[in-house]
Structure formats: C-alpha cells, structure tokens
Design a protein around this nucleic acid. Structure first.
Lengths: 234, 234
DNA sequence: TCAAAAGTGTTAAAAATACACCCATGG
DNA sequence: CCATGGGTGTATTTTTAACACTTTTGA
C-alpha cells in the first residue's frame, strides 16, 4: 500500500472493521462448513471463513450478505449476527475487529463458485476442519455452540433442509447437530404437537423401501403459535 | 476538528468503533439503568448510555470496562457483550458502529461520580426512561430482553444483589425482571434443589418482623453442578 | 420373500404447579 | 398482642422418557 493511496484520514486511529460468516449446511448426515482458500496474505493459501471489510454505506447484515455472495455465491439465506471479536492481536496486519455471523443454507440450492479474493471455496465436515487462518477456529467454535443451543428453541433447523423433507431427515439433522440419539416416537410427538409443519400429499421418491411422507415447515402457523404464547422446543 | 489534526490515514474509509454499556442495577423492587447526560454534541444535554471510542491497544471487553469506569466510576462488575449495532445512519456524525455490552452491578457498592465527557450520571427505572440519544432506546430494549431471557438459565441474578441476601430478596428480583409473580414455595424448592446457594449463620438486621436467613451464591458449587451436566434453571 | 425404513401408543417416572397455615420477631 | 413477613409440605397435573412391533415398498 503506497502512502499516496491513504486518502482517508481521521483525528484518532480506527480499527478496521470486517464481517466473517460461519456458513453451515447439512449433507447426508454430516454438518458442513463453507471455507475459502485465501488468495492473498496474510495466511495465503490457508482456509478461512468467508468475509471482508464493511463498506461505509451498508449495514452490518448487508455487509455479511454481500461478502458471502461475493466470495461463495451463496445468497438469500438465513443469516444472523453471532458475536464481535476484537482481540488486539487477532490479525497480524493490525487492529481488525470482526463482526461474525452464522448462516444456514439448504445445500441442494448451491453450486459453489469462487471469486473475488477467494481462490477456492469448499465444504468441510465440522469434525474434520483444516487449520484455519486468524482466530477463525475460535469463531467457528462459538458459532457451532450457538447453533446447538438455538436449534432447540428456535425453528432454524428447517433452514438446513430442503423445503420438503421427511420427519426422519429432520430427526437426523437434530441428532447430527446435537450429537446424540433421539427417540423417534417422542421426537415426532413433540414436533407434531406444535403444529408448525404441514403434512403434504407427497412422499419421497426413488428409495428402495417404503417411501416416507413429506412435510413442509409452515412459517405462518409458527407465528400464530408464538402469538399464543407457546415457544418452540425440540 | 482541524484538518491538520487528521493524522491517521487509511487506504479505505473506516467506520468509527465505539462501545456502549447498558448498566442494570436492582434497587428496592425496581430495576434501574445507569444513564449519562451528554456533555457534548450531538444530543448535547440528552441522556445516553455510557460509552465511547475503542482504543487501538485494548480489547472490546476492556474498552467497555474502561468507558464504564471513566464515565460512571463503576468497575469490576459483570459485563458481557450484547450485540453490535451498525445501521448506517445511527449516528449523525457519520458512520459509527457500536459494540454494546450489558452490565449488572450491586447497587450498594456504587456511589456514582460523573467525569470525562459525561456531565452527569443517574439511575432511571427501566419503566420510566427519558428520551435517549442515538439508537440507545433500541439498544436498551435488546439488553432488557437479553437480561430477562438469561436470568432464567444462567445464575446472573446474583450479580444484582448484595453478596448476602435473603431468599425473598432473590425472589423479588426475579419477579421484577420477569414481570410476573412467582410462587414462594416452588421458587425456594427449585433454587435449593440446585444446591448453589450457601445458607449462612446470619439473619438480616433491623427489620420490624422475623428476620430472614441470609444466603450466599456459591460459585464453586455452581461450577461443580455444571460439570455434573446439570443446568441452572429458575 | 426379504431387506429396509416408515409409522404408530402406552406406561412409568419426573417435574411443575397449585395451594394455606403456623411461626418468629419487633413494635 | 398484633402486624409483618418467614418459613414449610402435599396432592394433582403435566411433561418427559423409555420402550417394540407391524406395515409398506422396492429389489
């Protein structure tokens, strides 16, 4: 960076501000995270969370969504602020504070494409992550714990499944994220008692056994349910 | 601000970064928040959350604690990151992103003193707040909801009471924050079942009726309790 | 006809709730 | 002796947990 390019001046020094996204997807019994291979220093060639600098004319949520789309092609997904990480030495380039987000995507919708300053993007199992740049492993850990906690009291698990899913798929998703087995009958009883999924007149296709009924998350029923003072709980 | 004073230059523009604190205290059946009267523009003379700019050599938590102490004299209290607010137009001076914290203080410990850029500080009932500067009312709302949620699953209520307290005081605190009545016998049963408060050989003083037993939160018992896989719940 | 997963109820245990009276103390 | 809040137990309801077999379908 040439000095002549430093055209933005302030009376006091300012940390740089970035957003980073922990993007989760669920794929055949595995929880995966989207990482990009860094195309520049520092940590050139290392895997990292997608993210980048916040622009002056965009909200934080907007910045997170933009960076996610620019670096991975992922857009219009569930995206929620996670935590802000600001340790003084978390970036070797200097003071960089990052507002971390986590995203939940329906994997089936996404073909990945690398672009911008990411030379590559790929999904990794959360149990087999490569060594990550910066403090991204720590950020990931916080995100994973948040996901585990939140999936039990907010209906965010549906964001990781296709619009139409079987109850067994949903149960497997919960088992995968919570890392424990769940009783099939009790799970269904509790889910159906909430009356927030709609049973469809369709069954899954191309399976070598009895086809399971398909369901859909009914967001309007969920809102009604909330208004009546009930709370999601699985 | 003279141009000659603008000595910190960057290649790209950077938002300013601040911290703000929502400081709660509990006083005789009322939940209170600590506000400062602004001594400078913008919003000169308006009430606001204590806060200020993050320094380059301090973590976010450190910045929050420092600003809190500088502006109000409050120090060494429970302080936890709440959320980061970054709407483009939230500050009329330009782009300012703020990392909000909430703090819980034992009111009895604090004599307030104004200083630095706060010309005054005072406690307000959460149900009778003045009009606040910036988006501070919104930040407060988020903080209050967080407190209501968190007090039921983490033992943070004790941070708002003296070290020695009666069970009725604790119950009143919960009733105040949750804004509903709680059954005395059930409350005590659940609290004592967790075995995280220690019964002292002392009773309250100077009351015109039977004196209540004093208790103390036992942090080491609580940690043991957590390790055994139990979770705080009130 | 076999393999694979779908689908379905009941019982027991635990937790949450509702509820009222006697006790100790100071004024 | 009275006013005030302290302290305590039980019965009922609700929720959660444990548990196994029959059905459907495609290969």
């Amino acid at each position: 960076m040439k000095n002549s390019e430093k055209q933005y001046s302030y009376e006091y020094p300012r940390p740089a501000l970035t957003v980073d996204c922990v993007v989760f997807a669920y794929d055949e019994g595995e929880l995966r995270v989207l990482l990009i291979k860094r195309g520049e220093e520092p940590f050139l060639g290392a895997w990292a969370l997608p993210g980048g600098f916040v622009h002056m004319d965009e909200d934080l949520d907007t910045a997170a969504a933009r960076e996610l789309e620019e670096e991975t092609g992922v857009k219009k997904v569930f995206l929620e602020q996670l935590y802000t990480f600001g340790a003084v030495d978390r970036d070797p380039r200097g003071r960089v504070v990052t507002v971390a987000y986590y995203a939940l995507v329906k994997l089936t919708n996404y073909k990945l494409h690398a672009s911008t300053d990411a030379s590559d993007a790929a999904w990794f199992s959360v149990h087999d992550l490569p060594s990550l740049a910066f403090d991204h492993q720590y950020i990931f850990d916080v995100a994973f714990k948040r996901l585990q906690a939140k999936i039990t009291y907010e209906p965010i698990g549906f964001e990781l499944l296709p619009n139409k899913f079987t109850l067994t798929q949903l149960q497997r998703l919960y088992e995968t994220i919570l890392e424990r087995e769940i009783d099939k009958r009790n799970f269904r009883k509790r889910l159906l008692a909430m009356d927030i999924v709609e049973e469809l007149d369709e069954v899954e296709q191309d399976v070598a056994h009895r086809a399971a009924r398909l369901y859909r998350f009914d967001r309007s029923s969920y809102k009604r349910y909330l208004k009546e003072g009930f709370e999601f709980n699985l």
